[in-house]
């Protein structure tokens, strides 16, 4: 290809455009990083004094500690139970025909379309009408319904790529269906299951809107605790929390990229 001055102009303006877009994505995180070291409790730019006190405060603030604990419990239980239910369902979805399959599929995947505030409100009203307390159990169920479609999808794709002949081979070697499942099918699906579980856990840990409808003081999750903090206080504690969050997520993605190549995971190769 011959490069005319116009081509160079095109290339460079493209690069500048992309850099500006990436700058837009990064801007709030850079700002939050600066803000988190602002000494005063009133944010000013540029900060007059620097300190780490908001990080210390973030770690001392009980609501955050409780929120982290609650969120971890809910994410662990929610995504694990969703993995169990979702794997089973993806399996029958992939393998069998049965009455009501399409309906069941539509209902389980509906949370992809239904706005989260509607899901939260629905479960809140349901719990109120049948007198179920707003407990951790209810939140776990809420999170299962929200993350289940992602687990089903992830496992279903793995099952589609699964070589069924390996199961036939195991069967011919005398393995009963259950043994085939536990020694062949599940071990070979493990990468898909792990990816589905991890994605579900992250989604669940971050879920805010639907949870807001169902939490109480005792069960509030980290995102809800953070939201409540912003409403009550204007100091940069949340900036410190956000920085920790961003660093953790970015580190996780960098690791994921090194080990799995993100472009492959996302099918944009």
């Amino acid at each position: 290809m011959n490069c005319t001055p116009l081509d160079h102009l095109l290339t460079w303006s493209g690069r500048i455009l992309v850099a500006l877009i990436l700058g837009f994505v990064l801007l709030p995180f850079v700002v939050v990083l600066i803000a988190s070291f602002n000494h005063s409790s009133i944010l000013t730019f540029p900060p007059q004094d620097w300190s780490l006190r908001w990080y210390a405060h973030a770690f001392e603030y009980d609501d955050f500690a409780d929120g982290v604990k609650n969120s971890l419990i809910i994410a662990a239980f929610g995504s694990t139970l969703a993995l169990v239910a979702g794997t089973g369902f993806a399996y029958v979805l992939n393998r069998y025909e049965f009455r009501g399959k399409a309906t069941l599929h539509a209902v389980l995947m509906s949370s992809l379309v239904i706005p989260n505030f509607t899901i939260g409100l629905g479960l809140l009203i349901l719990a109120a009408s049948v007198s179920i307390p707003r407990s951790m159990g209810l939140l776990v169920f809420l999170h299962i319904t929200i993350v289940l479609p992602f687990v089903v999808r992830s496992v279903y794709v793995s099952l589609q790529n699964f070589e069924r002949q390996l199961e036939a081979a195991a069967e011919s070697l005398g393995a009963a269906p259950r043994r085939v499942l536990f020694t062949i099918t599940l071990p070979l699906l493990l990468p898909g299951l792990a990816a589905g579980w991890l994605f579900a856990a992250i989604l669940s840990f971050n879920e805010f809107t639907a949870s807001l409808f169902l939490v109480n003081q005792r069960t509030q999750t980290l995102p809800v605790a953070m939201y409540n903090y912003v409403r009550e206080y204007a100091d940069p504690t949340l900036a410190a929390v956000s920085v920790i969050y961003v660093v953790a997520v970015a580190a996780m993605l960098i690791l994921a990229h090194i080990f799995f190549r993100l472009e492959k995971v996302l099918n944009v190769d």
Partner: peptide
Amino acid sequence: MLIITLTPLFLGEVVRTYS
């Protein structure tokens, strides 16, 4: 580019909005 683009996806609405 992938990591920069994807990071916000895993941050949750509250952190992003606060920022």
